[in-house]
């Protein structure tokens, strides 16, 4: 798939949907949702993941675990675009009775492979899914998207150790490395560097790429799928709030939605390609 313009077009629509969702919900996480858009678009629309929106429980499907569950508006918008459910459902985000919970709930929404939200829980489940493939003799891949701040949770390293110990080459961890967490810069709050070296020391084949560059994402993820010797880590360098000038790289937008005026401005920017 070389048509990156098409992926960029889809990404723009998803960014707009995410902003509208968050604005309607009047709460949620703008910054980390926007930083992970291109990773998810590459996975679902770049020919990386095998899935069937008409059969979300298909046993041989590739799995997606959004370990940084707070970025779920982007996953919801991606799943809607991929045909798992109607787009109209997006506007019920965080409302009573909606399957679009504040953090992903696999029991409520088709297409969600694991309930996540409490940081560190997703990667442990992803390791379990990857290990299960071995017992069940399945060839599916497990993609796990993590936040960089999330890596401060000690359990993530327990999970990486296990993934490496069991040589889970069907596990591909993607770190949405936007450098910010709620209280400030990751490097100031609790530094996780040097990250590439840490992953390598834990036995992962590790790549560090631009997380908003489709050629990088597609090439790296395609290569990662062919790895048969070890788990893979892709450190995707991203910008929190990417695509909206006044949100980009601003920690204040970690956990707040756009106001009506901000939404209007943001949608205009996205349409005009600012």
């Amino acid at each position: 798939m070389e048509d990156f313009a098409e992926l960029e077009r889809i990404a723009k629509e998803i960014r707009k949907d995410v902003l509208i969702m968050l604005n309607k919900a009047k709460s949620g996480h703008s910054g980390g949702s926007l930083s992970v858009v291109d990773v998810l678009v590459a996975l679902y629309f770049g020919g990386i993941m095998n899935y069937d929106p008409k059969n979300p429980a298909w046993e041989d499907r590739d799995r997606l675990v959004l370990s940084k569950g707070h970025a779920c508006p982007t996953l919801y918008a991606t799943l809607a675009k991929a045909g798992f459910f109607e787009r109209d459902l997006l506007w019920t985000l965080r409302k009573l009775g909606s399957p679009l919970q504040g953090h992903p709930d696999a029991k409520k929404l088709p297409g969600i492979d694991a309930s996540t939200g409490s940081l560190g829980n997703g990667i442990t489940q992803a390791v379990g899914m990857a290990l299960a493939a071995r017992v069940l003799k399945k060839r599916y891949k497990v993609f796990c998207i993590m936040g960089d701040g999330e890596l401060q949770e000690g359990i993530t390293w327990e999970a990486f150790m296990a993934a490496s110990h069991y040589k889970l080459s069907n596990l591909i961890v993607i770190v949405d490395f936007n450098g910010l967490q709620i209280d400030g810069r990751v490097m100031d709050i609790m530094n996780i560097s040097p990250l590439k070296e840490k992953f390598e020391a834990f036995g992962f084949r590790t790549y560090e790429i631009g997380g908003h560059v489709y050629k990088n994402l597609i090439d790296t993820l395609t290569t990662a799928k062919r790895n048969v010797v070890s788990p893979t880590a892709v450190i995707a360098r991203t910008v929190k709030g990417y695509g909206v000038s006044f949100m980009a790289n601003r920690v204040e937008y970690h956990g707040v939605p756009p106001t009506d005026q901000e939404l209007e401005r943001a949608l205009k920017e996205l349409d005009n390609g600012v």
Binding site: E59, A106, D113, A114, G120, N121, I123, T124, Q125, A126, V127, G128, M129, A130, L131, A132, A133, V135, L136, K138, I155, E158, A159, M161, A162, H165, Y166
Partner: peptide, 26 residues
């Protein structure tokens, strides 16, 4: 032996791995 997994001294991860296995049909 092929259906036994020692997760090392990491009980929390073990619980999460078990969850992922259950989600996969084990």
């Amino acid at each position: 032996p092929n259906r036994f997994f020692n997760m090392g001294i990491a009980e929390a991860n073990m619980a999460g791995v078990a969850a992922g296995m259950a989600l996969s049909g084990l």
